[in-house]
Design a protein around this nucleic acid. Structure first.
Lengths: 335, 335
DNA sequence: ACCTACTGTCGAAGCGCTTCACCAATCCTG
DNA sequence: CAGGATTGGTGAAGCGCTTCGACAGTAGGT
């Protein structure tokens, strides 16, 4: 293993100089910097992470807590996780993967052991038991998702209320009068995971403003749940011509079921999905959708948390503005 | 921050004693052990990861390299990742998440910096450029997937050849005579990611043995690709009554298309999927499937890598035996 | 009874790095 | 051109832990 001392010797300078070249915390003459850098490359030197963490009290690691429960759409979780690690690398940081299985104690363990400088939490619940701990330990942390009381925390999320409003507006604009919101599984609402409820709130509000008659139904995963939900909706409200779907895994089943039951999209029913773009693009017809900006959320979370870890202040609430892309699944309403 | 020295003082012993209590590397009297353990709990002590890594040369971290390219089914990747982290925790280890973006240099960086004691690589290609590095540095590593030459490496994978044979056998047993294998996107075959080719090999072999006439077609993601592939298959071979599908994301579209084109499953066409169980269960009809044991793979990889890191020898090749579960999508063939 | 062996504990060295205090040389600035 | 800044470099302390060797004290074998 190559050590800093060896690099120093090879470059003919003192260890501290090498350290300063690497960290950039002091000005170093062009000349010696080059010499040191050449030695580093030549010897293939990489600083020992543990030693560095011990001496500097910073590990250059961000902990990412991913949900175990899979009522968040798994590909979105993965996309965020990947965005987090690639962004972290741009800050010369690595990512430690934790699951919510370990619970709140994981937070204590990580902060106390100095394993990570900062944390990013996904799958935040409205009354998340980890939040008091975060507040009290003053850990540099960003939440992806919104708890009930985000004061003093740093949160990133899509503005789901605006998303709901946007979807309602789009259907209203097209002339639809009766619409339905198909959400995630009921368990998600019961666990108060925020995003589902916020979409509903925004949707309900704007539906009111625009005079839309509307229905809201949760929908489980799988084909059966999807087709059951769908037929019950049309049974109850045969006049429905607009559907907003916030449930990625039900989407293909829902579309298949519509096709099979003889309702053409968009001629008979318009569909607006809340999903990642690639899901919208891989459906038939291609879906008008409000995209879930997973990459952006991951990236922002890292940026915020890096600011916090560096002692800089960070925006408390980052609500990403939703964007609706009109594709082939939505068209003019009745008449 | 609580240090080992503080624990020692609190318990009235020397620091080294505390260390030995924690590591169990020397025998400690019942009496002092209890006293120390109580102090640890009382002070909420967690060893400083960096200091420990520096002194002991072991970081208690496993690096997990996940694919960036998403031609592996994302939920499977995620499930493996989660299985890896939960299993790692049982060995008191944490998991560092890397993406294949950084390429082979990541391996050097991690091993040289002592950030991780071992690595688990997913998305291994037949001629993976990281493998020489692994061999040469002697890194404790496990591969999930099979390279062209696994000699001297530690690999875990589903036995895809057996999987192909199993699927062929099942259809043959049911009396089908003409069948098709619908695989992942063509790009996957071109990149030689092993698993697709191995399934094909096993399927072809057993189809030969059982006298099945068969066709093989890759299939892209999305509805269009799926329905296109399907109609071309039936155009070319109208007599086909059995389908093996190794493409999770095409599955719902394929099934929808079959339904729509008036082919009943399993009355007209039998479908055998190679996919995780929950995908099979969430389809309609529930699919006869060979399950991809993601959890098991993650778990095994950790166990193997922990053995290697501890200097114990490890199985070079772990091929998990596939299991076919008969559900509702496969039935008797023609006649 | 003596020597050996083992058990339980301690002290201290040292892992590889960062950073503080210090120094020498150069640079302005009035 | 004196005096204070500024720049570029060094030496050494010390971060919190593990681990080696030492050392009492007790046990076991003969």
């Amino acid at each position: 293993m190559v050590t800093l001392a060896q690099v120093a010797q090879h470059a003919g300078v003192s260890p501290s100089t090498v350290s300063y070249v690497i960290s950039g915390k002091r000005s170093i003459s062009q000349d010696t910097r080059l010499r040191v850098e050449r030695s580093i490359a030549e010897l293939g030197y990489h600083p020992h992470a543990g030693a560095r963490a011990l001496a500097s009290n910073r590990s250059h690691v961000i902990a990412l807590v991913v949900p175990l429960r899979t009522d968040m759409f798994v590909p979105v979780v993965m996309e965020i996780a990947i965005a987090v690690t690639t962004t972290a690398r741009r800050y010369a940081h690595d990512v430690l993967l934790l699951t919510s299985e370990e619970g709140p104690s994981a937070i204590k363990r990580i902060t106390n052991s100095g394993l990570a400088d900062a944390m990013i939490l996904m799958d935040v619940e409205l009354e998340d038991e980890r939040i008091p701990l975060l507040r009290q330990t003053g850990t540099a942390a960003a939440l992806i998702g919104l708890p009930a009381d985000p004061a003093g925390l740093t949160c990133v999320d899509l503005d789901f209320e605006a998303t709901g409003r946007l979807a309602a507006d789009h259907l209203a604009d097209l002339g639809h009068r009766e619409v339905a919101l198909i959400g995630p599984a009921e368990s998600v609402y019961r666990r108060h995971t925020g995003f589902a409820e916020r979409t509903l709130t925004g949707f309900r509000q704007q539906a009111g403003v625009r005079g839309l008659r509307f229905l809201h139904r949760p929908c489980g995963d799988g084909h059966e749940a999807a087709s059951g939900t769908l037929s019950r909706i049309f049974e109850e409200r045969p006049g429905i011509t607009g559907l907003v779907v916030q449930n990625e895994s039900a989407l293909p089943h829902l579309l298949g079921q519509l096709r099979q039951s003889g309702r053409a999209v968009p001629e008979d029913v318009s569909v607006v999905a809340i999903c990642p773009d690639d899901v919208a693009l891989h459906s038939a017809p291609r879906l008008t959708s409000v995209s879930v900006p997973a990459k952006e959320m991951g990236r922002r979370a890292v940026e915020l948390v890096m600011a916090l870890a560096a002692g800089r202040p960070a925006e408390e609430l980052t609500l990403l503005t939703p964007a609706l892309t009109i594709r082939e699944s939505s068209g003019p309403g009745p008449r």
